[in-house]
Amino acid sequence: MTAVLERASLRHRLAEKGVDRVLWLLVPGAVFVVLLFVYPFLYGLQLSFQPKSGGSPFQNYVTFFSDEYLAETVWITLRLGLPAALFNVLASIPIAFRMRGRFRGKRALTTLLVVPITLGTVLTAEGLLAFFGPTGWFNRIWLALGADEPARLTHNYWGVLFSLIITGFPFAFLLTLSYLSGIDPTLEQAAATLGASKRQRFRTITMPLLAPGLAVTFCLSFVLAFSVFPSAVMVGNPAGETHVMSIAAYETALRDNDFAMGSAIAMLMALVMLIVIGVVLIWRTTLYRGATGGKG
């Protein structure tokens, strides 16, 4: 019996591990990602440990945390990014809910909700400055309604937050809507025949199936909001309450030409972001993540 038990050819044994000629297709992609992403990132990482002014390799990081103006950027960025992402996700749930199923004008409404993607940060910023500015249309109405003084909504925290909501909401909405349409509506109908009220169906059927998708939506929204840069400069107060990490990193690297320190700030930015996303994704692992019975 053992006489015929000869080993299969090498080709087959490699193919068994998934290694065959198809993998050549990966070469351009792998070269690309190593050359343009991994290498620069690692280069930046090691650069961040070579402070421009010499000293200990950790000097840049020590400087960052001991300089209050720099250290504060972490909280400023989180204070903007977290509420913006949270708002965008939470606000898109009820709207996505109303958009399920077929109704007249659904495509028009979807398009209308997606249009802000095209605005771009500059038009949004110009518009926010003009509309919410002290003599803008908003404050004219605000004063006409009986307010004592114009609301201060630009060149501060609120301006940037509005900008993040305008550019971030369509994105969060699209993702939520596509996750929601992936849930088989007959599951809710089944729950209804078993006596679950609208509220119970939402809590016990839809929400648990939607939650993992919401976690991903939150992460992606947060990435968008966290990297806020142009709007923080234009509608915010870039030297003060909206001095976010991107501004600090950019100014250090390209205005002050301290690439080492700039890289250090960029690395810290990546770290903070990965921590937030990591926490959300760990929470996500505690959820049911199987099929949602949707189409396809």
């Binding site: 000869e6 299969a8 050819s9 080709r11 087959h12 044994r13 193919a15 068994e16």
Partner: peptide, 17 residues
């Protein structure tokens, strides 16, 4: 599907590779 072991021959010509 690659074989894990053994061989296939067609008129004594090996074809499994």
């Amino acid at each position: 599907l690659p074989l894990t072991g053994g061989r296939i021959t067609l008129d004594s010509r090996r074809i499994d590779d």
